[in-house]
Design a protein around this nucleic acid. Sequence first.
DNA 1: GCGACAG
DNA 2: ATCTTGTCGC
Length: 214
Amino acid sequence: MHDWNLTPQQARELQQQLSLKVIREDRFTTPHFVAGVDVGFEDGGATTRAAVALLRFPSLELLEHSIARLPTRFPYLPGLLSFREIPAILEALKGLETAPDILLCDGQGLAHPRRFGLACHLGLITDTPSIGVAKSRLIGTHTELPAEKGAWVTLEDKGKIIGAVLRSRSNVNPLYISIGQRISLASAIHYTLACTTRYKLPETTRWAHRFASG
DNA sequence: GCGACAG
DNA sequence: ATCTTGTCGC
């Protein structure tokens, strides 16, 4: 795997190179295990704490989880989130006994300036199908979104579809879904909804967040 | 130059 | 992300 001690400019150049390796179509078999990934911070940001929650699919029962702590060594810079969070996430993934069939990541995938958000980066490194599930927008524009659960509209940038704005729960702010690696946008939306019950966030993300934060 | 800006 | 209680609305 590549080096993580990069300057912001080197990181951006690496993203442009790696973005060429992102596979935007379904390349996986029926999933039985889905995982949520999230990161939290301790010591006022000095320590990065990553958590991964593995759930059985489609029952969504929690099977196992893993937590890892690492010294924070990259600042938060819009567009470079993966360089700050992935090192700790990779450590947490090592602690799982079962390999996830799909990763639901807390952040963007293709809906990124250089089409290489955290979900693409993590999916590529682990060679695992991944989905970007962000709570807010990084880039892109979209039309009005109906208020009912299940409704979605495309998220576009420079005339290209880079993701979808999905209403995962009626009358609540939408989620920003995008391709991470080895999955189509249609499937990304499908699996995100399949992992969602009565709340805005998928159960995978909810569990991961509980383990990564409070 | 000004405003936007995943977590 | 994080610092933090009550409060408004379906």
